[in-house]
C-alpha cells in the first residue's frame, strides 16, 4: 500500500466526492446566493445585488447581526468560564485522597453527557422552565411566589440557556480534567505540602500548570462548540410555533432564522459566509500548532 499515487486517489475518491458534494458545493452555492436578493418572493427570479447583503449585515446595527455577534462572544466567554470552574472543582473533588465512591459519582455525573442532547434540552425547557408545570415554578408556587416566565425575557432566557449549557458541557470537561489530574506525579503534591502549601496554593501552583498543556486542545474544542451553539438557543426560545418572545440569537441561530423563518435567503447566506470566515480566522489563530503539523 506504500507506493502508487493512483491507488491513493482511488481509495480516497468516494470520501472526497461525498465531502465535495455535501460540503463544498453547498458552501460555494451559499456564497453565490449571498450576492443575490433571493427570498420567498424571489425564489426563481432573483438577481445579483452585489455587496448589499454584506453591507446590511456589517454596517447596519439594527439588522441584528452585530448584536447577535456580540451576544455570541458573551455567551462563549461566560459558558467557558462556568464550565472550566465547575469542571475543575468536580475533578479536584474526585481526586481527593480516600474518596471511596469516586467511580459511583463519576458515573452519575457523566449521565448528561450520555443523554441525547436535544432530549435533555426539551426536558429542561418543559420540565424545569415551563411557566405552568415546570419544576422551578412549582417550587416557587409552593413557597408562595409568583410564577416566572423564564424564557420570555432576554436576560432570564440567556441565563437559563447558560444553565442548560453548563449541565450539558460539564461532564465532558470534568472527565478530561480528571484524566489530566490522574497523570500528575503525586510526589509534587507531597513536596508542596512539606513546603506548607494549602489547598488554594497547591492547586494554583501545581495542578493548574500541570494540567493546562494537556487540556489546551480540549479547551479550544469546547470554545468552538460554545461559539457554534445552536440547539440550546433554538430549542429553548425559538422553535417554530412556540417562540417564547426572547431574542437571544447567536450568530448560528441568526442565520437559521433569516433563512427558514423570515425567508430572506440572500441575506442569510451573506451572514452565513461572514460567520464561516470568522470561525476560520479564530480556528487558524487558536490551532496554529495543529496547522503547522499538518503542513509538514
Amino acid at each position: 500500500m506504500k507506493r502508487g499515487k493512483k491507488k491513493a486517489w482511488f481509495y480516497s475518491m468516494p470520501f472526497l466526492i461525498i465531502v465535495g458534494l455535501m460540503i463544498v458545493v453547498p458552501l460555494l452555492y451559499t456564497v453565490e446566493i449571498s450576492f443575490t436578493n433571493m427570498s420567498i418572493y424571489h425564489w426563481k427570479d432573483y438577481h445579483c445585488v452585489g455587496l448589499d447583503n454584506y453591507k446590511k449585515a456589517l454596517l447596519a446595527f439594527d439588522s441584528g447581526f452585530l448584536p447577535a455577534f456580540l451576544r455570541t462572544l458573551l455567551w462563549t466567554v461566560s459558558s467557558m468560564a462556568l464550565q472550566l470552574i465547575f469542571g475543575f472543582f468536580i475533578a479536584v473533588g474526585l481526586n481527593a485522597k480516600g474518596l471511596k465512591l469516586r467511580r459511583v459519582y463519576k458515573t452519575l455525573l457523566i449521565v448528561p453527557w450520555a443523554m441525547p442532547a436535544y432530549v435533555s434540552i426539551l426536558l429542561w425547557r418543559m420540565g424545569i422552565f415551563n411557566t405552568e408545570f415546570g419544576l422551578f415554578n412549582q417550587i416557587l408556587k409552593q413557597i408562595g411566589g409568583k410564577p416566572v416566565n423564564f424564557l420570555s425575557t432576554n436576560g432570564m432566557a440567556f441565563i437559563s440557556c447558560l444553565v442548560v449549557n453548563l449541565w450539558l458541557g460539564v461532564p465532558y470537561m470534568f472527565t478530561m480534567m480528571d484524566g489530566a489530574m490522574q497523570s500528575i506525579d503525586r510526589n509534587i503534591y507531597e513536596s508542596a505540602e512539606l513546603d506548607g502549601a494549602g489547598f488554594w496554593k497547591k492547586h494554583f501552583y501545581v495542578t493548574i500548570p500541570q494540567i493546562l498543556p494537556i487540556l489546551m486542545p480540549v479547551i479550544i474544542m469546547a470554545t468552538f462548540t460554545a461559539f457554534k451553539q445552536f440547539d440550546i438557543v433554538y430549542l429553548m426560545t425559538m422553535q417554530t410555533g412556540s417562540k417564547t418572545g426572547a431574542d437571544i440569537n447567536t450568530v448560528i441561530t441568526y442565520v437559521y432564522e433569516k433563512a427558514f423563518i423570515t425567508s430572506n435567503y440572500g441575506y442569510s447566506s451573506a451572514v452565513a459566509f461572514i460567520v464561516f470566515l470568522i470561525i476560520l480566522v479564530l480556528y487558524k489563530t487558536m490551532n496554529r500548532r495543529e496547522f503547522s503539523i499538518s503542513e509538514q
Binding site: 460540503i23 458552501l27 435567503y265 476560520l280 496547522f291
Partner: peptide, 20 residues
C-alpha cells in the same frame, strides 16, 4: 487536500442548510 479538509472541519453544516 489535508489543509482543505482541516478548514472544512471547522464549518458547521447548518450554515449552508438553505443551499443544501
Amino acid at each position: 487536500t489535508l489543509y482543505i479538509l482541516l478548514v472544512l472541519n471547522a464549518f458547521p453544516a447548518i450554515l449552508s442548510m438553505f443551499a443544501i
